[in-house]
Nucleic acid binder design. Structure first.
Length: 275
DNA sequence: CGCCAGGATACCC
DNA sequence: GGGTATCATGGC
C-alpha cells in the first residue's frame, strides 16, 4: 500500500544505525525483517512510500514501527532555523530520519552485540544468530527466504560454545544472561516502556554486558524513550570537536534522542563511514 | 603489522 | 570519583 508522509526517508532510516535488518535490495528499495515479517519499502518520491503490506498490517504494526504519527517536521524546521550551526546542517542532512519502535528484546540483544563493533559486522552477527536460532520463513510472492529473530526462551537455552562459533566473541555470555533474564521475567522489557527513561536505563544496566551506551540505545530504539541520549565513539567526536564537551542534551527537553540521531548520522557522513 | 568499531568490566590509585 | 588493560573479531 502507498503512504504519504513527510520526514520519512527509507534509506536514511536504514543507514541511521538504529536497526540492523533493513537493507537495500534494489534501486530506492529496502527490505526489512521485523516482528517475524518481511516487507519491502520503495521510496517513490520524497514523501511517497510504497510498502508491501496489507492495510491491516500497516495499521497494526508498521505505522507504529516507523512512528508515522509523530511530527518530526517541526523539530527539523526549528533546528534548521536555529542558532546551532552543526545541528542546522545535521537536521537538514538527516531530515528523513525517524526513531523506530523496534522489538525490545531484539534491540537489547542487537546492541549487546554492537559493543566494540562496526555496523557491517553487527549486521552479519545478527544474521548468523537468526539463521541458527530463529525460524525459517519463506515469502513465495517475493521469492525471499528469511529467518525471524529468536525468542528469549530459545536464546536462554543457547550454549556458549555454539554462540562462540557464530563469531560473537566475548559477548556470548552477555547474550545468554540477558535472554535468561527476559525469559524468566527477572526483567520485564514491556513494563519498562511505561517507565521513565532513567528508570529503564538503570534497570537495563543491571544486566551484565549492558553499560550506559547500550542501555540508552535500547531505551531509545526499543522502548521509544526519545529523551535517551546514547554516546558512542562517533557522538564523543561530535561533542568534543563541535561543542568542546559542553553540549547539554536537556535543552532539548524530552526528545534529545532525536537530536542525537541527526548528529550521529551527519558526523558519520562527514567522515565517510560505511554503512 | 597496527588501528578501529553505535563498549563494558575489573582493577588500579 | 577518574584512568587503563583486556576482552573476540573482522576490515582496512
Amino acid at each position: 500500500m502507498r503512504i504519504r508522509n513527510k520526514n520519512f526517508n527509507i534509506k536514511q532510516i536504514a543507514d541511521s544505525g538504529q536497526c540492523f535488518r533493513m537493507n537495500q535490495t534494489a534501486h530506492n528499495t529496502h527490505g526489512l525483517i521485523a516482528f517475524n515479517r518481511y516487507i519491502e519499502l520503495q521510496q517513490l518520491e520524497d514523501d511517497v512510500i510504497e510498502i508491501s503490506c496489507s492495510e491491516k498490517d500497516y495499521e497494526l504494526i508498521w505505522k507504529d514501527y516507523f512512528d508515522l504519527e509523530f511530527d518530526y517536521g517541526t523539530i527539523v524546521d526549528r533546528l534548521i532555523d536555529g542558532p546551532d550551526d552543526f545541528l542546522r546542517k545535521a537536521a537538514s542532512y538527516g531530515s528523513g530520519i525517524r526513531i523506530l519502535r523496534q522489538d525490545p528484546f531484539e534491540t537489547l540483544i542487537s546492541f549487546i552485540i554492537s559493543q566494540n563493533k562496526n555496523i557491517p559486522s553487527i549486521k552479519s552477527c545478527i544474521e548468523r544468530i537468526c539463521e541458527a536460532y530463529g525460524e525459517r520463513q519463506s515469502d513465495s510472492s517475493k521469492g525471499v527466504v528469511y529467518y525471524t529473530f529468536p525468542k528469549p526462551e530459545i536464546l536462554a537455552d543457547a550454549k556458549k560454545e555454539d554462540l562462540r562459533a557464530l563469531k560473537l566473541g566475548y559477548r556470548d555470555e552477555y547474550i545468554i544472561g540477558a535472554a535468561r533474564a527476559v525469559a524468566s521475567g527477572k526483567i520485564d522489557l514491556k513494563a519498562l516502556i511505561a517507565c521513565d527513561n532513567d528508570v529503564a536505563v538503570k534497570s537495563l544496566k543491571s544486566l551484565r554486558g549492558v553499560g550506559d551506551k547500550v542501555a540508552n540505545c535500547v531505551s531509545l530504539f526499543g522502548l521509544h524513550h526519545i529523551e535517551a541520549f546514547p554516546i558512542d565513539v562517533w557522538m564523543k567526536r561530535v561533542l568534543s570537536e563541535y561543542y568542546q564537551d559542553k553540549f547539554d542534551p536537556t535543552q532539548y527537553n524530552g526528545y534529545a534522542g532525536i537530536i542525537q540521531q541527526y548528529m550521529f548520522f551527519y558526523i558519520r557522513h562527514i567522515h565517510g563511514a560505511s554503512v
